[in-house]
Amino acid sequence: MNYIKTLAFALFAFVILLAAKPKTPADDKQAVTQAVEKLRKAMIDPDKATLEALVTNELSYGHSGGNVEDKAAFVEALVSGASDFKTMDLTDQTITVVDNTALVRHKLSGETSNKGVAGQVKLAVLLVWVKQKGDWKLLARQAVKI
């Protein structure tokens, strides 16, 4: 009888190990890709809770004009409409994951209406994401005009 219990336990443990396979670099890249897309959508249609959930408390958000915002200023600018993306297209994206940090580079083009003034942006962007409690969150961003 002990033999059957031991065998059943071993089989159960084996199944659990198979189900809990470790994340692969491809899994992390896919998760970062999804996080970038969530951020893109949240910047077009701002929601305070969504934006706050996507970024770290230590956020350093650098604009192409030299202005740097913390988390509160970044969220407020989008939610208030002071920074208003009407459209945002991301191209030429690359993602490099090192441990719990991901570097994302892409080109961003879009239409804006900052403080009610229509404009267009064309930027090269570097995003630094960190994995916190299993979720990828934006730690830093820097943009330059192209």
Rank of each mutant, 00 (worst) to 15 (best):
44 I>P: 05
26 A>D: 14
58 E>R: 11
56 T>Q: 06
140 A>D: 07
9 F>L: 15
37 E>R: 05
31 A>Y: 03
58 E>F: 03
34 Q>G: 06
83 S>M: 15
77 A>M: 04
16 I>K: 04
69 E>T: 01
73 A>C: 01
54 L>R: 00
109 S>L: 02
9 F>S: 12
63 H>F: 10
69 E>P: 03
72 A>W: 01
82 A>F: 10
62 G>D: 03
109 S>E: 08
90 L>E: 06
3 Y>S: 14
10 A>Q: 09
122 K>H: 14
80 S>C: 01
117 V>K: 15
126 L>S: 07
79 V>C: 01
108 L>R: 11
127 L>D: 15
126 L>G: 07
60 S>R: 15
15 V>S: 14
91 T>E: 06
14 F>G: 07
69 E>N: 11
38 K>R: 14
17 L>P: 08
124 A>Y: 11
76 E>N: 09
129 W>F: 14
50 T>V: 12
90 L>G: 02
88 M>N: 12
4 I>S: 12
96 T>I: 12
73 A>G: 08
28 D>W: 03
92 D>S: 10
69 E>F: 14
112 T>Q: 00
127 L>H: 14
51 L>W: 01
8 A>M: 07
25 P>K: 10
136 W>Y: 08
27 D>C: 03
14 F>M: 13
128 V>Y: 00
7 L>E: 12
95 I>F: 01
24 T>H: 01
30 Q>C: 01
34 Q>N: 13
109 S>W: 02
118 A>T: 07
87 T>Y: 02
21 K>H: 13
39 L>V: 07
105 R>L: 15
52 E>C: 01
1 M>S: 13
122 K>Y: 13
144 V>P: 07
56 T>E: 08
20 A>E: 11
65 G>E: 09
77 A>H: 07
63 H>T: 06
94 T>A: 08
133 K>R: 12
47 D>K: 11
8 A>H: 08
23 K>Y: 10
115 K>Q: 12
54 L>Q: 03
80 S>P: 01
39 L>F: 02
45 D>R: 13
119 G>K: 06
2 N>W: 12
75 V>P: 00
61 Y>W: 11
29 K>M: 10
100 N>T: 07
126 L>C: 02
62 G>V: 00
68 V>I: 14
123 L>T: 05
78 L>C: 05
71 K>L: 00
42 A>T: 05
86 K>Q: 13
144 V>E: 09
72 A>G: 10
78 L>R: 04
113 S>G: 12
35 A>R: 09
144 V>L: 10
83 S>P: 02
127 L>V: 01
1 M>C: 11
5 K>I: 10
132 Q>M: 03
7 L>Q: 07
1 M>K: 14
81 G>A: 04
31 A>H: 04
98 V>N: 11
74 F>S: 02
78 L>V: 03
94 T>W: 09
